[in-house]
């Protein structure tokens, strides 16, 4: 009988990421190697953290989600600020299977029972706000309180960039912004800002610091991986790689389109000049990267730094 596999994700049904999952499921089934894949999008099987734990357990076979650092602090490399500054660098760091980032990720995922398939940079996760921050393109104080998630790295980076920070859970961002508890949030790609906030009339500025990336990862359970034969593995690897390539291309192509949509819905998109962006990047790297050795380990940090520089 065919092996039935569960493929879980966290993105909404109409999101391109979910369409990519469905495309992968179809490619694998069409290859006719004895695999059937059911897609569960939109947090149906739980949040990213739950998918992570239940994929290790083998209750879920493939997942698409963020890699959380609960099991291994080394995964905080996903929140390393200014790892890549533009789409080309993003491609070099995350889409190249031989990059230090992917090697480190692959090794550490394997150690906890997961098989890395592909990393998908979906764009930069930037600051959106309801008013214009003061000194928005320098490191000077912004006189603005923004939401961050519970990560020391993210908090310290945003403070270095001149913001006051408040920890707010993802579920509370929308009401917090809507009612004005915070003036902004470090959270979202242009696409997410448009679909979640702009369409509902919340927020009016989007600032391209490009410090953090929105990365979703395709990974498989090692238990599932052990059950597959070589032919099936080849089909699966290929399906994920091809879909990830086209997903990346789609994200890259649509970044400008969503910027346009943001502007049409009344947003102002602020992009610092290359010199000012480089100044902010260098200052943050000099301050925050050395601190990260304590979290992710000096060896991991050195490998990634060597690769990026």
């Amino acid at each position: 009988a065919d092996l039935r596999l569960k493929f879980a994700g966290t993105l909404p049904v109409e999101h391109q990421g979910t369409k990519t999952m469905e495309q992968i499921a179809k490619t694998i089934e069409d290859a006719d190697v004895g695999l059937k894949v059911t897609v569960f999008p939109a947090n149906q099987l739980g949040s990213g953290e739950e998918l992570f734990e239940d994929t290790i357990r083998g209750n879920i076979d493939f997942s698409m989600g963020f890699i959380y650092a609960h099991k291994d602090p080394a995964f905080e490399i996903a929140s390393m600020p200014y790892l890549a500054g533009d789409w080309d660098e993003m491609s070099a760091v995350l889409r190249n299977p031989d990059s230090a980032y992917n090697q480190v990720m692959g090794e550490h995922l394997d150690a906890i029972g997961l098989h890395l398939l592909q990393n998908n940079p979906e764009g930069f996760a930037n600051v959106l706000s309801t008013k214009e921050p003061k000194n928005w393109d320098t490191l000077d104080p912004k006189d603005m309180n923004i939401r961050v998630w519970s990560s020391n790295v993210v908090k310290d980076t945003m403070k270095e960039l001149g913001f006051n920070t408040t920890t707010i859970a993802w579920a509370d961002i929308f009401p917090a912004l809507q009612s004005g508890i915070v003036d902004g949030a470090e959270c979202c790609t242009k696409q997410a800002t448009y679909t979640i906030f702009a369409k509902s009339g919340v927020g009016s500025y989007y600032i391209d610091y490009n410090a953090f990336m929105e990365i979703s990862t395709f990974y498989a359970s090692n238990k599932t991986w052990a059950k597959l034969n070589d032919e099936q593995r080849a089909v699966v690897e290929k399906a994920f790689a091809e879909a990830s390539d086209s997903f990346f291309q789609w994200n890259r192509d649509n970044d400008a389109a969503f910027e346009q949509k943001l502007v049409e819905s009344g947003y102002t998109v602020l992009t610092p000049s290359p010199e000012k962006a480089a100044a902010m990047r260098d200052a943050v790297r000099a301050k925050i990267w050395p601190q990260m050795a304590d979290i992710v380990g000096q060896d991991v940090l050195d490998r990634i730094k060597a690769d990026v520089e």
Partner: peptide
């Protein structure tokens, strides 16, 4: 803390 001291109880939810 937020309104009077402009401060944040970082990661209190943990």
């Amino acid at each position: 803390l937020r309104y009077v001291f402009h401060a944040d109880l970082f990661a209190y939810e943990e």
